[in-house]
Nucleic acid binder design. Structure first.
Length: 568
RNA sequence: GCGCCCGUAGCUCAGUCGGAUAGAGCAUCAGCCUUCUAAGCUGAGGGUCGCUGGUUCGAUUCCAGCCGGGCGCACCA
């Protein structure tokens, strides 16, 4: 609908220009918003006001010129008004709104999809937690956001895929081995002093217990170093497996998993650094090698190879991004915890160092989740290993509710997540509120079929009976869906979709409460307050409308990776 | 100290490529089930959009400076 009216506006502007009524060389971007008040029409434009200075005419005059040049004015609009400073308010003909329902019906799950991406390839990297322990709530939010981004981008025509980068090399892995080995020794009855900087979580002992048998078998033949290495390998596999399982129960699967260790083994790190060296972007100083990120706006240069000859974490990260860039993606998205924001300039420096524009990489920051239970904060401490895991949250509130909560707010702001609220099955809980709207419509089909009312075929339904403001209001909301989807995807902000769904669900519930969709069952007297006449036509048209609402809720939830239950 | 993010109703937050009387949910109060799921709906109260300046016909939105909160400033990951 927006596009239809925008096109008309543009035609009007160009027409006026040809006649010499307007002279602005380039039109400002034509934005059309649904105005806040119904008396301001369905769509409003501010072009006339923004052109006032370049035209040296009053906004009202410009608006009048535009109106005079509007093509097919009577076919498109019931009313076109010019209001006070220079707003152009359009009231679109109901017939055009009614057409939206046919569009939804014919496109089904694809309604709202677009091709603004035109197949451009995007790689979204998210979660990427160290395989040194279970995923915690923060990872859960990152997972929900990452998955939603992939699906949103796919929906508007991008070829988007997901990847998990496994930090299976370096110090953290070493510590994992040491920690598990210590617990293993304890299990075998030895007293050991647990490494100070090791992983203290109870899950480490659990892992040690689980792999004990395998270790016992080789314990006699291996010295302690080799045993420790074995601990590391087994624990790593065990923990990565847990992470995969957790993600799976959260309904998340990755297109690919990428191992940091593989970069070191294949010498990809050396190669990536050599390439920088050949471009004079690597510098040896004080016995260490520095990446000259300050050449590209970072505040200072960064060490990639330490005095002791070890690579830093950044070295693998450089190689990893080098690899991603060379795989030919048009855009790389990294979803990071907000505490890593200081890392962005150096990664963008990496991108530029390899000759790519810096916006080839976009980092989506995800802020911390503050867990509450009945309004009281649930304290977490990573140091002592006492933190709430993602699995605990999923097990307690369910994957759908958890995802919805994670996606409810702008990811770069702190999120309060009340476990009790997320579990509650009432209107307080936005997840169920939205899902319930969907289930309610499904229930309508069940009741209709029980009463022998067939689901109407849209081709044979007269939609012109849908003239009630509530009916048209719902349709207008449905018509806004494609725009919401697109904005949400292009801004990398899934919460816009969550918000929209809550609004749509609210309208559905209001409508449902106020109007009847099916005629009352035969044995009920029609109450006096039912002033509406429910002709078979109207019933059919309303059912079509309900079908459309159901479809859009389903599409919206789907793009967020949340299920749309038929029954609750 | 420098950098990034945040500051909107009692609480949690939307909105802001500059627009017309600033929105939702929760909480509070008052109502609505013999009907298609009350996991729902209706109504009421509640605001100097952190502060001060600037740009503009117009600023919650843009700019500058302050104030408050979070995070980051390693040859850690």
């Amino acid at each position: 609908m927006q596009t239809k009216v925008t096109t008309a506006l543009l035609t009007a502007l160009n027409g006026a220009k040809q006649k010499g009524q307007l002279k602005t060389p380039a039109w400002p971007t034509l934005s059309l918003d649904a105005p806040k008040r119904p008396e301001w029409g369905d769509l409003a434009s501010t072009v006339a006001m923004s052109m006032a200075s370049s035209e040296q005419k009053s906004p009202q005059d410009i608006a009048q010129i535009i109106v005079d040049n509007l093509p097919e004015r009577d076919q498109l609009f019931d009313r076109v008004e010019i209001v006070r400073p220079g707003f152009l308010n359009f009231t679109v003909k109901p017939a055009l709104w009614q057409e939206v329902l046919r569009e939804i019906d014919s496109q089904g799950l694809r309604y709202g999809h677009a091709d603004v991406g035109s197949g451009r390839r995007v790689l979204v990297e998210y979660v990427s937690a160290n395989p040194t322990g279970p995923l915690h709530v923060g990872h859960g939010r990152g997972a929900a956001v990452g998955q939603a981004l992939v699906r949103l981008l796919q929906a508007i025509g991008y070829d988007a895929v997901s990847e998990y980068y496994i930090n299976d090399a370096g110090r953290q892995m070493k510590l994992l081995g040491v920690s598990v080995y210590a617990r293993y020794q304890e299990l075998s009855g030895k007293t050991v002093t647990f490494p100070e900087d090791g992983y203290h979580g109870a899950y480490i002992a659990a892992v040690a217990h689980r792999i004990k048998e395998q270790l016992d078998r080789v314990a006699g033949e291996l010295n302690s170093d080799a045993l420790e290495t074995r601990c590391r390998t087994l624990a790593y596999q065990e923990l990565l497996g847990l992470i995969r399982d957790d993600l799976k129960s959260f309904g998340i699967e990755f297109h690919s998993w990428f191992s940091e260790a593989s970069l070191l083994e294949s010498k990809a790190v050396d190669q990536a650094l050599d390439e920088l060296k050949s471009r004079d972007l690597l510098l040896q100083q004080e016995g260490a090698w520095w990446f000259r990120s300050s050449m590209y706006g970072d505040e200072k240069d960064r060490v990639v190879k330490k005095q002791d000859g070890e690579y830093t974490y950044l070295a693998s990260d450089i190689a990893y991004h080098h690899d991603k860039l060379r795989r030919g993606y048009d855009l790389l998205i990294d979803v990071w915890g907000a505490d890593h924001h200081g890392y962005i300039p150096r990664m963008q420096a990496v991108v530029q160092a390899y000759g790519y524009p810096k916006d080839r990489l976009y980092v989506v920051l995800v802020q911390l989740v503050k867990l509450l239970r009945d309004g009281v904060e649930v304290k977490m401490s990573k140091r002592t290993g006492e933190f709430i895991t993602m699995r605990e949250v999923i097990d307690e509130v369910g994957a759908d509710a958890a995802k919805f909560y994670f996606l409810m707010r702008d990811s770069k702001t702190h999120l309060e997540f009340d476990l009790e609220l997320a579990k509650r099955q009432s209107a307080d809980n936005p997840v169920y509120y939205v899902q319930y709207a969907h289930a309610r419509i499904c229930s309508l089909w069940r009741v209709a079929s029980a009463r022998g009312i067939a689901r109407p075929s849209i081709a044979e339904t007269d939609l012109t009976v849908l003239t009630d403001p509530d009916e048209l209001g719902l349709i207008k909301k449905l018509a806004a869906y494609p725009e919401v989807l697109q904005t949400s995807a292009l801004a990398f902000e899934p919460h816009r979709m969550t918000y929209y769904l809550q609004q749509l669900a609210a309208m559905l519930h209001t409508f449902y409460n106020k109007h009847r969709i099916l005629p009352p069952a035969g044995d009920h007297e029609v109450s006096e307050t039912a002033t509406e006449v429910l002709t078979p036509n109207r019933v059919a048209a309303r059912l079509v409308l309900m079908g459309a609402v159901q479809q859009v809720i389903r599409n919206g939830l789907d793009v967020l990776g949340i299920s749309a239950p038929e029954q609750m």
